[in-house]
Design a protein around this nucleic acid. Structure first.
Lengths: 324, 324
DNA sequence: CTGAAAGCGCTAACAA
DNA sequence: TTGTTAGCGCTTTCAG
């Protein structure tokens, strides 16, 4: 109830124990008698005690916060991952420090280095920097990669291979045979996986192009005439592609089926509404934080086995249909 | 250069002074001889000293962080404000704690209360909670409101009246006379201002509707036949409205001009591309932080005069044209 | 103008 | 199982 200035000493006095005992029940750091535990907990509740983060940090080394670095916070794709991460972190009583790297000069590396001092660990989303530089930036703090895998780093990724596969399954099952895949930026880990899988599945690869509306529009210019379905690196490109196609007088999906990836909001707002592959964005963030908290609690046993892959799924809409 | 474990004592030793002296030059807390100042600064540089936030917080009371509460981080509108705020904060050496209130049960009030303990001040974006409750939540910390004004609170807002005015000016100058204004949620401060201005300018008010694609589509059903231009509360509604209109066989802008508000990314991606009123989003965030930092440095003289209004501007695209 | 000393609130040995 | 004792790194009186 009281006004936030309650210290551990107040609780100790109220419960008739020593401050360190209070610390122990709060942190579960030792075995206490049920009796004292109860008394302390009651005192905590009555006083409305909440441990002071700064003091904790100073004394124990743990900051009680985790850092999340994303390329672009204004991109709902990343913002959603952040949201998932924040939920998980807050549920665990950890604060979150979010930073976006693309905006402004500061890159992932510099930003991570800045944050590293003030957090117990880091979640790095879709980082493109060399793994070595990242390693240096996190200065001993545990870190988990999201949507990228690299030797020596724990990671949580959406199943990129499956993403391409479900997309192909969908159009193939509708009868399409000549299928194009529009590549995204080649420096992204997700791209490298998808490109490879698309190639394996027999797609006609075009690109790479920028992962934007304009990039998709460009792709429209280089599509073979006999292609009846096209899968793009992401939804924005798909929307740009469709727009360009429409302007050239081609009908979607009548002449050409188009399939996006990521299932961002815009996919459902365009005409035709875009069929897309949805990613478990919030879960990606939440899982990453879960892994990170484990790592913070008990430092890495065998980091290289700490890879988690989350399933994706198709969301069918109007931009795909049987070929003529 | 060294590994982040440099303390104020190290610097003091290197510079041949007392730790408190180092503290003074770092904080500019007293007048020092140019000589010692220089020596200390050199030591700081050579050692790569960076003050420890937790220690600072514990000793001095300042956390070195500010909190930013937004309704929905996955909405690029707010994410952009956050970005602006982060830039300003980081430039001032402050960390930022971002929280979004809509996702999950936690409302603005609860979230602000949680954050308040760990920050020096708060930026509250478009809060809808009663001012009284907010007041309680920030527990003595300074706070500034973004896109809302309320007695007793400093604020930074985009000029809502001007937003409606420039929209009207645009369509009026093209010759439109019967103009509808589609209202957004009535519990938002921005809505209250816009609705009032729209009414004053002689618009036909419809709504309120949800500030979404679906909300805009609904509005399409209740538009008078003699209206030749319609201005909506936001871009998403405009896009939904246009979509619904198109499905009913009406042409945009040939039959009806549509004008959105906020100028979010999607505005430029639809066909027709949406004419919209752009808001200085990043600047809104940055200005709010600037104000907040002032308030933190020297507590409120006359809070009620601390209102800042930023200009908005029209971005003309294809969804508006002269009436038939 | 600068040094010395006392904590801020908490955790972590070390005893008991 | 619990109390005692030191600090963590910094700011801030208070002297000088």
């Amino acid at each position: 109830m009281s006004r936030g200035k309650v210290t551990i000493a107040d609780v100790a006095e109220r419960a008739g124990v020593n401050a360190s005992t209070v610390s122990r029940v709060v942190n579960g750091t030792a075995s206490l008698s049920p009796d004292t535990t109860a008394r302390v907990q009651r005192a905590i509740a009555e006083l409305g005690y909440r441990p002071n983060r700064a003091a904790r940090h100073l004394a124990g080394g743990r900051t009680g916060a985790i850092g999340i670095v994303v390329p672009d916070l204004t991109n709902p794709f990343f913002a959603t991952i952040v949201r998932g991460a924040q939920h998980a972190a807050h549920d665990a009583g950890e604060l979150t420090l979010v930073a976006d790297s693309e905006s402004r000069g500061r890159g992932e590396v510099e930003l991570s280095a800045m944050l590293a001092r003030d957090v117990d660990g880091l979640v790095l989303c879709s980082p493109t920097s060399p793994a070595g530089q990242l390693r240096g930036a996190v200065t001993g703090r545990p870190a988990v990669l999201v949507n990228r895998q690299a030797r020596g780093w724990p990671s949580v990724v959406a199943d990129q291979a499956q993403a391409v596969e479900v997309a192909f399954d969908d159009v193939r099952s509708q009868g399409h045979e000549r299928i194009a895949y529009v590549r995204g930026p080649s420096n992204k880990w997700t791209s490298s996986v998808r490109d490879r899988v698309a190639a394996r599945l027999g797609a006609v690869l075009v690109g790479p192009f920028a992962p934007t509306f304009a990039g998709g529009a460009e792709a429209a210019e280089v599509l073979d005439d006999d292609v009846t379905a096209v899968i793009t690196h992401n939804d924005l490109m798909a929307v740009g592609l469709i727009d360009a196609l429409l302007r050239k007088g081609r009908r979607v999906p009548r002449d050409l089926s188009v399939l996006g990836c990521d299932d961002i909001e815009i996919a459902a707002l365009t005409r035709p509404r875009l069929t897309s592959v949805a990613m478990p964005l919030e879960e990606l963030g939440a899982t990453a934080v879960g892994l990170l908290l484990d790592l913070i609690a008990r430092p890495a046993p065998d980091v290289d086995s700490l890879h988690r892959t989350l399933p994706v799924w198709l969301v069918a809409r109007d931009s795909t249909a049987r070929p003529k």
